[in-house]
Design a protein around this nucleic acid. Structure first.
Lengths: 68, 68
DNA sequence: ATTTTTTGTAAAATATACTTGACATTTAGA
DNA sequence: TCTAAATGTCAAGTATATTTTACAAAAAAT
């Protein structure tokens, strides 16, 4: 799976560490790290929590409109 | 959790049964039923598969912008 | 009215998301 | 340099998403 660079840059834009984002989403730093590195299939609720913490929507962080 | 009526109506608009949608998403009918009834926390990959099968995006089917 | 399809739901089993704890490496600041 | 914060990753455990099998009821079709 591809790395989630959109999420990584959205987090960087807010100057948040993985640990800080993890706390706001009530998961562990390892989980955030795994989601960003892309070798993961997180639940929609976690994705929504991440989006809210980063001020983005699902489409902005987790949707790829290129076909297939 | 609230029922996912956006998903239910998107499926109805295409005249697809839960079973048919389930096959296209490679999950069981029960899983689709649970997602629609809302007492569930599906994975993002399943959500994406459902969106693609129904011709919608994540924001259209799984995002609530009015929440807090 | 009767059959067939669709849907709701439930218990037990399996697959996997997520945690906990830990250690190594990289990056940023002093 | 030196140090601390940030990140990558791994193994083992726990929580939960998803499957399998099954039955009953609602809706649609004949």
């Amino acid at each position: 799976m591809a790395k989630n660079l959109k999420m990584k840059s959205a987090r960087a834009a807010l100057d948040l560490s993985q640990d800080e984002l993890a706390k706001r989403c009530k998961v562990t730093r390892q989980t955030i790290s795994a989601v960003e590195s892309g070798d993961y299939n997180p639940t929609i609720n976690l994705c929504i929590d991440i989006c809210r913490a980063l001020g983005k929507t699902l489409d902005e962080l987790f949707w790829e409109d290129d076909k297939k």
